[in-house]
Design a binder for these strands. Structure first.
Lengths: 240, 240
DNA sequence: ACCGGCTTGTGAGGGAGGTCACATTCAGCT
DNA sequence: AGCTGAATGTGACCTCCCTCACAAGCCGGT
């Protein structure tokens, strides 16, 4: 560990390239090579801000390694975390395409490997490569879909408990698809951050977790969380 | 008025075509003509359902005349109205592109003129016409943007009053851009529907309006609403 | 004119959760 | 170890608004 980055860069750029392939997959090799020429491989430390909500779009970011927190922020400082982006995710795509300001703020929560593409370069790339353009439309549809789910969760839930249950279920289905018996998931976020994800207060999250533990629905094992009663969690998530 | 439609159809298809031009504008004439061949001009009465949330995507709908209510619905019947689409809007685009189920339910609230395009036809059209594909990406970015604003409004507001003020401001900025003195807007929705737009109860909306009237911020003139004090409304919208 | 249905207006009660204030525990640092 | 700051746990209070209940207004139909 001579530097925060160092050897890591060399290793991850290989895996990174594979990830890019996965996003713009099915593209002819020519298109892929064109993409390779316009991207800038960069590295960010933990806590770096890729872009800020309201900023004019400079370009897009393909996350190769590490996680990025995507959030919106009210004038009074209250923050809503929309999602934690994992490697493979494309960030700032919508703003880059439309030219409107970034809708979100993107901040690294790990040391990150990122491929940056300038807006002009990307737009030119899209004009010249129709297939890639379709992939972009698909990506945007995906993002829209996620946003709709967010709206549903925020707008149609009756209680904070319901939203927390939904969040936990979402995490379990994303993480341990394999382990069917007792899903476990790493609690990488603080109660404060979870509160910001479901639009509630930190104290409420603490109380909700205490309640879930008392009712034997979840169980804490250090920083991992065991889901003991997934059915009950589902009931909470749908009933309110 | 021999029939609910009748002459209207012939008139509006001309204007309608202009609208389609506006959406896929800048396209070469060849592309436009190709689009004309795959669209089906159709008419719906008030209260018709274009598509339902969760349905497999049959295709997209270009709204030419009339308004369409876009909503999501919880298992308990609680409804959240996301927007009232005006002529020119493309509906079901994201689902058509991604192949995932429609995220929303679309229901006409006027008699409507609509151009329908089948999913397969549209996808083929996109493959063959790269420029149109880019336009689609732009449209999707727009929709994503709107969804983000919805999330912001739902997730970061402290009170129902704040959300109502935001909604009213949004409406005034969309409707009477010209009249700078005292913006007026047609209240085409019931309190119940407004409540569904901001995720609150009907009674709360009634009470909020009563309060705004008492404080001389708005004034009712039949079914039109005068905004007497836009500054105050803005304060409510941002302070909570 | 009368009726029934929808919309709006208003009161009373109660519950969820935000806020404040503090105690406690945990994790990293030297 | 011990110290420090962050994260968690918990109680008390109070506000917003949801719910229920009902009155009043508005409007089209016959």
């Amino acid at each position: 560990m001579l530097s925060p980055y160092g050897l890591d860069i060399i290793e991850s750029c290989l895996t990174c390239k594979m990830r890019v392939d996965r996003i713009f997959c099915d593209l002819p090799t020519a298109d892929l090579q064109a993409f390779e020429t316009i991207k800038y491989a960069t590295a960010y430390p933990k806590g770096a801000v890729l872009f800020v909500e309201g900023q004019a779009p400079r370009g897009l970011f393909v996350l190769c390694k590490g996680r990025v927190k995507l959030s919106i922020c009210a004038s009074d400082g209250k923050t809503l975390i929309l999602k934690i982006a994992d490697p493979g995710e494309v960030l700032g795509l919508s703003a880059t395409v439309s030219g409107k300001p970034y809708e979100l703020t993107a901040e690294t929560i790990d040391p990150c490997q990122v491929n940056f593409v300038k807006r002009e370069d990307f737009l030119r790339f899209l004009k010249e490569h129709g297939d890639a353009c379709f992939k972009v439309a698909e990506q945007l549809s995906d993002k829209y879909n996620t946003a709709c789910h967010e709206v549903r969760s925020l707008g149609l839930s009756h209680s904070a408990g319901e939203k927390l249950a939904k969040l936990l279920l979402e995490w379990t289905s994303k993480n341990g698809e394999a382990s069917k018996q007792e899903p476990r998931l790493k609690l990488a976020l603080t109660h404060e951050e979870i509160a910001q994800m479901i639009g509630t207060s930190r104290e409420t999250v603490t109380r909700l977790f205490a309640d879930l533990k008392k009712r034997q629905i979840v169980q804490a094992k250090g920083s991992t969380l065991l889901i003991r009663n997934k059915a009950a969690l589902r009931t909470i998530a749908s009933n309110g």
